[in-house]
Design a protein around this nucleic acid. Structure first.
Length: 198
DNA sequence: CTCTCGATGCACT
DNA sequence: GTGCATCGAGAGA
């Protein structure tokens, strides 16, 4: 097992309303372990909530082969391919009364394996993990991780890391969507330079 | 079957 | 600020 180890969040963490989970995932650590030895990780600094009754959500029009993970048990990864180029990483989270829900992770502050991440991206700078497409590339997250359990140590999981003070959590409108743009369901860590721009 | 377009990122003006 | 690469899912015929 790798030297660097963290405690995964329990499944119960994800079994609450999606918006609350999105907020509380700030400060947690997204951990990627490659070949059981290389550890890449980043502190979550930007998230967005997507629920089943939300027109902007993939789950809005019902279950399908693509979005079925969102309708399954909480604490699993929902990874999808978009714009012909990018993967986006979500954690399935919802209140037990809801049919589906997930939290999109939009930005990370790199913690472990920064050199490794930057080796691949020649133009390594602050933007290496800033943006949903960028962070999946930096952590080598792809469709093979769709449906993976995030509550156990493995190739991909989310762990306890830091507590973000309430004063440093800011809610804003979501980014890059055309429907339900008014909902304040994007959460960012105030003044963190890794939060994506726009 | 064909057509549209997206929870993006990057190059360019 | 604008344009676009690139492709799979979903919608419609």
């Amino acid at each position: 097992m790798p030297k660097v180890e963290y405690d995964p969040l329990p499944r119960a963490f994800y079994a609450r309303d999606t918006v609350s989970v999105a907020k509380e995932l700030l400060g947690k650590l997204l951990v990627r372990v490659i070949d059981e030895k290389i550890v890449l990780s980043g502190m979550i600094v930007e998230t967005e909530a997507y629920t089943s009754d939300d027109p902007a959500s993939h789950a809005f029009k019902g279950i399908s082969k693509r979005n079925m993970v969102m309708f399954g048990d909480v604490g699993y990864a929902y990874v999808y391919f978009i714009y012909g180029n990018h993967y986006c990483f979500n954690a399935v989270a919802k209140d037990p009364s809801m049919s589906a829900g997930a939290v999109l992770v939009r930005a990370l502050q790199p913690i472990d394996g920064i050199d490794f991440m930057q080796k691949v991206r020649v133009r390594g700078d602050d933007r290496i993990t800033s943006g949903p497409g960028r962070l999946t590339r930096a952590l080598f997250i792809g469709k093979e991780h769709n449906g993976i359990d995030l509550t156990v140590k493995g190739p991909l999981y989310i762990a306890y890391y830091a507590n973000i003070d309430k004063e440093y959590i800011v809610a804003t409108k979501r980014i890059g969507i055309t429907k339900a743009r008014d909902k304040p369901w994007r959460f960012i860590v105030k003044d963190n330079k890794y939060v994506s721009k726009r």
